[in-house]
Amino acid sequence: MIEFHGVHKAYGKRIKALSDVSLNIAKGEFVFLVGPSGAGKSTILRLVYAAEQPSEGHVVVDGRRVDTLRAASVPYLRRNLGVVFQDFKLLPRKTLWENVAFALEVTGARPGEMRRRVGAVLELVGLRGRARAYPQEMSGGEQQRACLARAMVNSPKILLADEPTGNLDPETGTGLMQALWDISLMGTTVVVATHAHSIVDTFRCRVVRLDRGHLISDSVGMGYWGPLEPEQDGPPI
């Protein structure tokens, strides 16, 4: 579903965000991208939704080369992707319902279809009763679930989450991650960029670890620190 082939990404001559990253994420897989700030996690996500272009190498999403995609085709790629952000990016002057419906409206969806899908996705994230609330009337957890609802309303094949628990307390964060896990069980590919150790360790799924733009480990079920020896590169005890 997502392929990175020898991808480099540099900003100018001095800043290298990614160096020779090759990666394959299959359909329906749940993957954590982990690493410290500046490791290149967000850059990988931005390359997937074509907000950036690789400096070298190529990126394939759902069978399409993203790096050679025409600008006019990018919106159609993004309709197959859902993106969840740490800062939610909800529109303050729209209600929860309008914020979620917005993603369908701009693609020209029929009103009946829109009502059905928005209702279903709000049900899925447990916010059906808050449809008329404005973002500022909602808690952080509710806003993040609203953001998830907006990302899911188009029934995307891929869901990308950039530090989705960064602004949430641990309990709410785990709840949100559980919701993402449930979504992946329905066949959606989910990629989560995070540096929340405890959550990654709880889920025990595939973890791709980055450091200063290099992919340093790719393991399944081995938690945040992956196969590296803790003495060599582990967490402070």
């Binding site: 919106p75 993106v83 990016k89 917005f102």
Partner: peptide, 17 residues
Amino acid sequence: REEVLIMRLVGATDGVI
């Protein structure tokens, strides 16, 4: 501007924006 950025993210074409 936030609205414009979100519209782009959810797949609105430049014309619709």
